Amino acid sequence: MAPLLAVIGAGGKTTALRCLLPHLTGQHVLLTTTTHIYPLAPPHTRLLLTDPTEPALLDALRVPGAVCAGRQAEDGKLSALPTALLEAARRTADLVLCEADGAHHLPLKLHRADEPVLPPQTDRCLIVAGLSAWGQPVAQAVHRYALHPRWAHDPVLPVGAEEILFCIHETAAACGLPPRQVRILLNQADTLLSAAQGAALAERLTAEGFSCRAGSLQQEADALAAWILAGISAKD
């Protein structure tokens, strides 16, 4: 069964998935979603399949390269494959990458009880949080901010270290996996100030037992991708 890496949170999930693909050349990779995702078509992937049959998807996965697949959804997005088809794909692929959350393009997120939508037997969960939230009002930076009672009462509260940590801790709890199966990426450390802020947060999260990095997927894609994939990029 192919290992499955799920990506949740906010502030760069799809970018993270796109950055992983060049590091998987020669492997049989399925890129999909349990929620909704804008499809990654060639040249980012080898092939894009919409509403594939099981024979078509499995045949595609027998050829090296990344296949992006899902069911047709609104606004040009893809939605989740049927569970049985995803399981069949895991028996054929070397690795499955799955976007398992949505954040309406905001850098942070809180979750309803039915979120995130991790596939069964997820091997690793990458939590992404966007440092661009720092200093913004929670109402403008946090998807579903009103799930936090104080933030609902004070939507102009500026995001700082404690607010970012709260979102990350809430996301880690929502995913339900032990820290050893979780990677936390503090993305959007694109300036000296945001890099310093991210490094301080990463130190705190590392002390809690998480594998955490602060960095920029725009500037450090290769190094961050290697860290995300370490130990999971080969079929068991």
Results as ranks from 00 to 15, higher is better:
G70I: 03
L21C: 01
A16K: 00
P82N: 12
L95F: 04
A226E: 15
I37L: 15
S233V: 02
G209L: 01
D222E: 15
C125E: 09
G102Q: 03
K109G: 00
G130Y: 06
T92G: 11
D59K: 10
L24H: 09
L61H: 04
A103I: 06
L217E: 02
V63S: 08
R71H: 04
I232C: 09
G11I: 01
T14W: 10
L165C: 13
I168H: 01
E162S: 11
G209I: 03
H153A: 15
A41H: 14
Q27M: 05
L97W: 04
Q121T: 10
G9M: 07
L58G: 13
A207C: 05
T14F: 07
D75T: 12
P22V: 11
P116I: 05
V96E: 04
S132P: 02
T53S: 15
V182D: 06
P119Q: 02
Q218I: 03
I8Y: 06
A207S: 13
V159D: 00
S211T: 15
A113K: 15
P149K: 00
A226H: 13
E87W: 02
R62Y: 03
P64G: 02
L49R: 04
H36Y: 13
A200R: 12
L24K: 05
C68L: 02
L201E: 00
R144M: 01
G102P: 01
L57H: 03
G209R: 01
T33P: 02
E162H: 10
L31M: 07
E170S: 14
L201F: 02
A84I: 13
A223C: 07
G12H: 04
A230E: 14
A2T: 09
A173L: 13
I184N: 04
L224Q: 06
V156F: 14
A66M: 03
L40H: 11
H105A: 14
A223H: 07
A214Y: 02
P55L: 08
A41L: 08
H28W: 08
A223S: 13
A88T: 10
L229K: 12
R180M: 10
H104S: 12
S211E: 11
D190W: 04
V96D: 08
D94F: 07
E170T: 10
E99C: 09
H111E: 05
A2S: 14
L58I: 11
H169K: 11
N187C: 03
L224C: 09
A195W: 00
A60R: 02
G76Q: 12
A56H: 08
E162N: 07
P158F: 08
K77V: 07
H104R: 15
